[in-house]
Design a protein around this nucleic acid. Structure first.
Length: 928
RNA sequence: GGGCGGUUAGCUCAGUUGGUUAGAGCGCCUGCCUUACAAGCAGGAUGUCGGGGGUUCAAGUCCCUCACCGCCCA
């Protein structure tokens, strides 16, 4: 395709098919397809979004520079890595839309901007998916063996792992694809190993037998966070334990009868006089016939149950602590499969719930079950499998979190990292202050293998950066690597720096760490954000990010949380097929007020698409009229802000131009501020208000009067194209596709502009562009037109019928009515005669305000509706006038009010009174 | 049990440090296919801002209390 010079571009004749926008830039890329100037009547994003997405994907637009000499301010952010085998859901769509708005904006602000993409290996989730796949063929991972299974998972990852990244590319996310990372990459694995070895050597990672949450289905330990608590109706059973050498028995209460098989003590509170006489004695544990001591411990709450508690150290976290304090033996009566172990006497081999029934029956038979009362308890279930977790003593690896958490708290207290919205700060503190050591080992096969080797001879542990051949303690070669892998979140915790090349001292790391921002969901505040804080501070000596923005949840039309199990999930790609990416983004962002959830409905999506359609049609209108006027594609040279071109005849810019440039300037200010403070709903809403409410509804309507055949590129066209092009740039971060599509049509080879709108400058506000007078005048014009429309609607007049009108106007209104008579007549569908000054006594259809009186020539029969309206307005006015007078007449009150409030109030009162007066006159006029 | 958030128009939600007659989108009603857009245009209706109490000249906004809903933690 040949490049075209400005002068001989096709697309301007009646044939109208050109190739505007094709160009080379530094010989890198050119727009690889034809872009006609004429637009289809209906906005069909499906027709052009994939093309731009592909073009961006193959470009270098989103690659920042890591050169030290590059002095631009840096903006950096890493993606919350989605599960590698997953696909895009609405939660991602929202999160990525917010991130994309922010990164595109920073890029347009001229910042050196990095959005780093990638995926997480998601240990448990991925292993489960693959196991489920294999199960269909009747294969278990055990039958395959570890190596073969790992190979299968990699195979699966290669096959399905790219889905989510491909989807991100399709929807045009402005990520730097050249820096894509995966948590099991070689580089990231190196980082994981380095951190593990360093922390181990510092004593911040240790191994030992402690109480953990055991998932009997997955056969692995879990961290506290991976357990979700659920309230269920159950019972509190009261057992009698006979006191040895006595007729007495103690009554203990429990929610888990089957654990009594592993009881090794009964505790009473040292301050509980009811039981003190039992101290030093022992009880004979029923069913097991084991003698166990009665001990004194604060954990026995005199207020709860009977005040006596049974202690099962191997299967309850609190009992485990008590056992440590009192040196009690641990008896594991429940095994890894949640069945009663060999220590469980006759119950051995039974499932835990079966055992519960049997224990209860047997105790009852022996008269030792005193009673059972209804009780609501909270059971811990595995986040992944939903199976009730078994608290169990097990030898696992842990991160010692106390000092890491303290430093992480301090960092936020010092303001080095800020949470938005602010309420998350407290939640973060609370969690960090009550943090427990983090169980990081998992009995899985998919993940980062723990770099520790156990010696079969001396039982010492060797932890090393390079795989050892000998035990570092005794030199034995009889060593084997630990079979466990690390919790997925361990590698995720390193993501902000491992992705930048750490532990190497890379240019990326120097440039982009700490990240400027993190945008993520509250559901992983503890799993991920908190742990990144700890690891970032520990490994890098600085926080991982300066700001954390926490977004809400996407809900369905019934306000229900979207979940696969509920089956109410919505596939973003299907939504996009139907409404387009831009409309989908806009819908999500319109709902994304900080701290609130987002409700997604078809109505909202349709309304967002309507907005995109509005932009499309505004462009279509401009382009059509450009052809008529003989105007070629044009856009202003790139600046931060613009002042309107003047009419060479008068030396002044037309009123509507001065006004729209002032409005544009205002919105640029509002938008920059809103994006900078993560107020995405406001961004979307303000764009809507400006483009639809100001640009389309008024500016374009006013400009219609100015268009002339073959006018060429006059000041009117320069102004309208400047505003339109700025609008596209303002819209671009939110609606990247439609803005690129339209912008490219205005671009011409050699006009010195960037090759894509995403590389242009985001408009800014400047006080010099503000034009209060123009704004006041247009507002007056809008009031005049509104008054007429309102009046004629009340009079039931045909909107198409031109009505004769007489207008008496004063001050600004007089000036505007005279100078903008043509606009007034056209937009109000009237034929007006304008007089300056106050109106004589009128009769007929009158609408009055302090600034003007309007008389429409209609039959007297039509006036009653209008009379009713004015009467209603009067009642309202009388109320507010009385209110204002009451406040202003009280000197004590007035003296306490700030001066500007008093002035405001006085001005308002005067305005109300004038309106009231004018209404009174109108009522007289209407009473024909 | 501890904590956090919410309750504003029929629906979903905005509402900045207390200060104009409380807003938007959708929906609804009326009239228009006015040649950019019916995915549109013009006009309109609808709110004791969850209940009660308090502070203040002034409260949707601050305080107390109650009710209901949701979430997090143990």
């Amino acid at each position: 395709m040949a490049l075209l010079r400005g002068g001989d571009q096709p697309g301007w004749g009646p044939e109208g098919r050109g190739s505007i926008g094709c160009h080379h830039a530094h010989g890198i890329l050119k727009v690889p397809f034809q872009i006609p100037m004429q637009l289809e009547k209906v906005y069909e994003p499906q027709q052009f979004e994939p093309r731009w997405a592909e073009w961006w994907r193959n470009s270098t637009f989103f690659q920042p520079s890591n050169q030290p000499a590059d002095a631009r301010p840096v903006f950096s952010l890493v993606i919350p890595p989605p599960n590698v085998t997953g696909s895009l859901h609405m939660g991602h769509m929202l999160e990525h839309s917010e991130i994309d708005v922010t990164t595109r904006w920073h890029r347009m602000k001229g910042h050196n901007t990095l959005w780093l993409p990638g995926t997480d290996h998601a240990g448990i989730a991925t292993q489960m998916v693959v196991e489920r796949e294999l199960a269909k063929e009747g294969i278990t991972r055990q039958s395959l063996g570890r190596e073969a299974f790992e190979a299968k998972v990699w195979e699966y990852k290669e096959l399905h792992g790219g889905t989510i990244l491909r989807q991100m590319a399709r929807i045009g996310e402005s990520v730097d694809w050249s820096r894509t990372r995966f948590t099991l990459d070689e580089g990231l694995s190196r980082a994981v190993r380095t951190v593990f070895v360093n922390l181990y050597r510092k004593g911040l990672i240790y191994r030992g037998p402690y109480m953990v949450n055991w998932d009997p289905k997955l056969q692995t330990a879990l961290s506290d966070l991976e357990v979700v608590h659920e309230k269920v109706d159950s019972k509190l059973w009261h057992f009698r334990y006979p006191v040895k050498d006595s007729e007495e028995y103690v009554v203990v209460a429990t929610t888990r009868p089957e654990t009594m098989l592993g009881d090794t003590a009964v505790a009473i509170n040292p301050r509980d006089p009811r039981y003190l006489h039992l101290h030093g004695k022992s009880v004979l544990l029923p069913l097991m016939q084991r003698e166990i001591p009665i001990i004194l411990d604060e954990m026995a709450d005199p207020e709860f149950g009977t005040g006596c508690v049974k202690i099962t150290p191997a299967h309850d976290p609190n009992d485990f602590e008590a056992a440590m304090r009192h040196n009690l033996p641990l008896i594991r009566v429940i095994d890894e499969h949640a069945r009663i172990s060999g220590e469980g006497g006759v119950y051995a081999g039974l499932d835990r719930y079966e055992a519960r029934e049997r224990v209860l029956a047997d105790l009852e038979a022996q008269g030792l079950l005193e009673r059972a009362e209804p009780y609501e308890l909270s059971v811990g279930k595995s986040q992944r499998t939903g199976v009730v977790v078994e608290p169990m003593v097990s030898t696992q690896w842990f991160v010692r979190t106390r000092t890491l958490a303290d430093k992480s708290i301090e960092a936020v207290e010092q303001g080095r990292t800020v949470f938005v919205p602010d309420n998350w700060t407290k939640i973060y503190y609370d969690w960090m202050r009550n943090i427990r050591d983090w169980c990081i080992s998992r009995q899985l096969w998919w993940g980062h293998r723990i770099p520790a080797w156990h010696c079969h001879d001396c039982h010492g542990i060797t932890v090393a950066m390079e795989d050892p051949t000998r035990c570092e303690h005794c030199g034995s070669v009889n060593i084997a690597q630990d079979t466990d892998v690390l919790d997925t979140w361990f590698s995720s915790a390193l993501w902000p720096f491992s992705t930048l090349g750490w532990p190497e001292e890379t240019e990326d790391l120097k440039k982009f760490y700490p990240n400027t921002l993190l945008i993520t969901g509250f559901d992983i505040l503890f799993f991920w954000v908190a742990r990144m804080m700890m690891m970032g501070i520990e490994c890098m000596g600085d926080v991982p990010f300066r700001t954390v923005y926490i977004h809400g949840l996407v809900r369905d039309a019934e306000r229900q949380k979207m979940s696969k199990t509920k089956g109410n999930t919505v596939d973003p790609l299907e939504i996009i097929d139907q409404y387009g990416t831009d409309a989908c983004r806009l819908t999500l962002l319109l709902g994304a007020a900080p701290g609130t959830d987002i409700v997604l409905t078809d109505e909202r999506l349709a309304s967002s698409r309507a907005f995109a359609n509005k932009i499309w049609n505004a462009a279509r209108f401009l382009f059509l009229n450009m052809e008529r006027a003989g105007v070629e594609p044009w856009m202003p040279e790139e600046r931060a802000f613009y002042v309107p071109h003047v009419d060479p005849a008068t030396g002044e810019a037309p009123l509507e131009d001065r006004w729209i440039f002032s409005r544009l300037n205002h919105y640029a200010g509002v938008l920059n501020k809103a994006i900078d403070s993560y107020r995405y709903h406001e961004v979307a809403q303000q764009l809507w208000a400006f483009f639809w409410g100001d640009f389309c509804d008024w500016y374009v309507e006013l400009k219609k009067l100015r268009f002339q055949e073959n006018s060429g590129l006059d000041h009117h066209w320069k102004n309208i194209l400047t505003v339109f092009e700025c609008s596209l740039r303002l819209l671009h971060p939110v609606m990247p596709f439609i803005t690129e599509e339209l912008w490219q049509r205005l671009r011409r080879e050699g006009d010195g502009r960037a090759e894509s709108i995403c590389l242009t400058r985001y408009p800014e506000a400047d006080p010099s562009v503000q034009d209060a007078r123009a704004e006041a005048e247009i507002e007056t014009l809008q009031n005049l037109i509104g008054a007429v429309r309102n009046l004629r609607a009340d009079l039931g007049q045909d909107p198409k019928k031109k009505i004769e009108a007489v207008i008496y106007a004063r001050g600004t209104a007089a000036r505007v009515a005279q100078s903008q008579l043509e606009a007034l007549n056209r937009l109000a569908t009237i034929d007006a005669t304008v007089h300056e000054g106050s109106a004589p006594a009128l009769k007929g259809a009158v609408k009055s305000s302090p600034d003007f009186d309007i008389l429409l020539q209609v039959p007297a029969a039509e006036l009653e509706a209008q009379r009713q309206r004015v009467l209603k307005d009067q009642a309202q006015l009388e109320k507010v006038i009385a209110n204002s007078q009451r406040q202003l007449s009280n000197e004590a009150v007035v003296s306490k009010m700030p001066a500007h409030v008093v002035d405001n109030l006085r001005a308002k009162l005067q305005e109300y009174e004038e309106k009231h007066q004018k209404n009174q006159e109108a009522l007289t006029a209407l009473a024909v």
